[in-house]
Amino acid sequence: MKKDEVKKLIEQGVRELNDALAAGDSQQLKEFMAVMARFPRYSFNNCLLIVMQKPDAQMVQGFHAWKKAGRWVKKGEKGIGIVAPMVYRNKEEKASEDGEERMLRGFKVVHVYDVSQTEGKEMPEFARVTGDAGHYIDAVERVIRAKGIELLYEEIASGADGVSRKGSIVIDPKLEGAERFAVLTHELAHEMLHWDKVKRLLTTKTIRETEAEAVAHVVCRAVGLDSTTHSADYIRLYSGDLDVLAGSLDGIQKAAAQILELLGAAEAVKEEAAA
């Protein structure tokens, strides 16, 4: 797959998402966000490329990475084209701490393969969460407090499940399980995305609420939880132009990836303390 083909595929994917939203069809965006949940560290464009080429992908790696894992790509399988940065050593600039200064010189198309396209050594079975959110509630609470955000559990006069107040999150104490985790993540997304003055001027409440719910949905899916607090409306976003839609989904993906990374770090610290 060439660069111009990748560009056209991305443009086509964004256009199809936009058309689906305008028509009130949430299925395509659901599929896209499911891919975002499975690959939280991939960029918006790469998630879009994966969903356009193989929406059922579960685990992707390059040819040589699979070979190191004791598996090989089946004969005749077509790779999934994604974009990767081209980084070169800069001999003219001052060397970095590791002895080399590296410069980003653009992007190139590389191909990855889903585990279903490979064969060989059996893959290990990864533990999956079945809906008990207690473990993750503790982790997200620690992430919130570690970011210097006050976390309170008390009834909210407006009747809302949760509220973000710039440096403070309030959660209805009656919420339990996956519902509590989803609302905690939703409000954390607000804290991360929506208290910048410029951001608030350039967005509406509808956009901000939708982005926060989308982040929570992706994070819940990524950890294996079924969040019941999100209505189907979260998926419809808003009828903006292609650039606005793409920008919103890019922010959703980055926020979800950051939260998942922080959750992983919080879990690692807890395990070390218990050792």
Rank of each mutant, 00 (worst) to 15 (best):
M123L: 15
K68P: 11
D98Q: 10
K108H: 10
V198N: 12
V218I: 12
F181Y: 11
V223C: 05
I144P: 08
A127L: 13
R38Q: 10
V170M: 04
M36C: 12
V87T: 08
Y113R: 05
K121V: 10
A127T: 08
L175I: 03
A127M: 15
A273H: 14
G240C: 05
D241A: 05
P124K: 07
V73K: 00
D161W: 07
R200S: 08
E267R: 14
E271Y: 11
A182D: 00
L29E: 00
D4V: 12
G81I: 01
Q253T: 06
T203P: 15
I10M: 08
D196H: 11
A178M: 06
E122S: 14
I144Y: 08
Y136C: 04
E150L: 13
G131Y: 12
M33K: 04
R102N: 06
V83Q: 13
I171M: 02
A178T: 01
E271Q: 13
Q53Y: 11
L237I: 03
C47E: 02
N46K: 02
Q58V: 13
S239K: 15
G167S: 10
D19H: 14
Y153I: 00
I82P: 07
V73C: 03
A214C: 09
T203E: 08
K94Y: 15
A265T: 05
M36K: 04
G120C: 08
A146D: 10
A274P: 15
V143E: 07
E176T: 07
S164P: 08
E267F: 14
K75R: 10
A232L: 08
W72E: 09
G131D: 07
D138T: 09
R221V: 02
A216E: 01
G240N: 04
I169H: 06
G81H: 09
A37T: 02
K94F: 14
L48P: 05
Y234A: 04
N90E: 15
D243I: 07
E77I: 03
V112F: 13
P40S: 04
K254D: 06
I156M: 01
Q61V: 06
A37E: 00
F63M: 04
K94R: 14
F44L: 06
I259S: 01
Q117R: 06
R142P: 10
V183W: 03
V223F: 12
Y42N: 05
H230L: 13
D172L: 04
Q28C: 07
V73P: 05
L17W: 07
A34Y: 09
T228I: 03
D19N: 15
E141T: 04
D19S: 15
M36N: 03
S227R: 00
